Computed example of a mutant assay.
Amino acid sequence: MKKYKFSLILLAMFVVLTACGGNDSAQSGSSETGKDSNFPSKPVELIVPYAAGGGTDTVARSFADMAKNDLGQSIAVVNMEGGGGAVGMQNGAKAKADGYKVSMVTVELLTLPHSGLAQFSHTDFKPIALLNEDSGAITVKADAPWNTLEEFIAATKEKKLKVGNSGTGAIWHLAAAAFEKETGAQFNHIPFEGAAPAVTALLGGHVDAVSVSPAEVVTQVQAGELKVLGVMAEERVESLPDVPTLKESGIDLSIGTWRGLAVPKDTPDDVVKILEESFGKTAQSDEFKEQIKKMNLGYRYENGEGFTKLLEEQDQLFANLIPSLKLN
């Protein structure tokens, strides 16, 4: 009888200990591998590598406010400016790979390393979603003698035309340089402190063309002051439906600026999947599309796979283009 009672006591102790261990696991929300099975179980940070109030920051804050419902957690935007985006993206690449720190990455993720201004690479991230894209566009004054890209290119071969951009080494300078390389056109590149001053110079007749985005000239186009000869996009842009893409003119070039979301490369696949599904739902919502339109930006969504393909293609483009410009 004593032996039987002792066995019952041991069995009871075993059940209690097992139950306690089970509670520990449930409370921690972790599997044996240490992954968070309840992700996300706390707020997520969204690193923006530029100052508060800018275009990228505004997109990030609008998206974060909408995405919290699909994600099930609040999303806090954290601005880490400096180095033309390098500081914030470097922090994002080196963050703990658990999904709780997401980075807003821009085309500078590709251009800065090839310009020798950053040590990271797009391979330091796992892409989650592309949120927007604004292509370059060849824009001239409404009364300019060229009405097609072919006429414009032919004119540059007779005399170098002055093309304004948003700064040496910035994306619209690179867009114009890529156009030159692809078509044989010849430009005198005129840098300005941003796209707006370049457009003002074009209106004043100080340059012959600009290579900035459609969003930055559409108001003047609608007012009859400027005309766009071609856009450097995969498809025609919604705001300028009658303007052909370069590819329609036989020029194999698509280049511009974009914004997307990414996490450190070692983030677990199950966490990446949750982020991709929830962020994808928000990015494809009518509410977010309408917000992008209100901001006069171009909308383009790609999931992680599509975003990765874009990064690989454009990284190769900039790897070939930027060293040839001898910017350093």
Rank of each mutant, 00 (worst) to 15 (best):
Q284D: 08
E277L: 07
K101P: 01
G204R: 02
D57K: 05
V228L: 07
G224K: 14
N328Y: 11
A95T: 11
A198C: 10
A93I: 05
L130C: 08
L161C: 01
D286F: 11
S37D: 14
S31I: 14
S41F: 13
I47L: 15
K101G: 03
I47D: 00
G84R: 05
L131A: 03
S211D: 08
Y4H: 08
R61C: 07
M66R: 10
G260S: 05
P244N: 11
T148F: 07
M66K: 14
G84Q: 01
I47M: 03
T18K: 12
G194S: 13
F318Y: 15
F120G: 06
A177C: 09
R236F: 03
N165Y: 03
G230N: 01
Y100K: 10
G84H: 04
L10M: 13
E45M: 13
I255G: 00
K293H: 14
T282H: 07
S37H: 01
G280A: 06
S103Y: 02
L17P: 01
D208I: 00
L174V: 02
A93K: 00
T257M: 05
E225P: 01
T58D: 09
L325W: 08
S37M: 15
V217A: 05
L327D: 07
S211A: 15
Y299C: 06
G194W: 09
D242Y: 03
E313N: 03
Y50M: 05
A137N: 01
Q314I: 04
W258N: 01
I9N: 06
L131P: 02
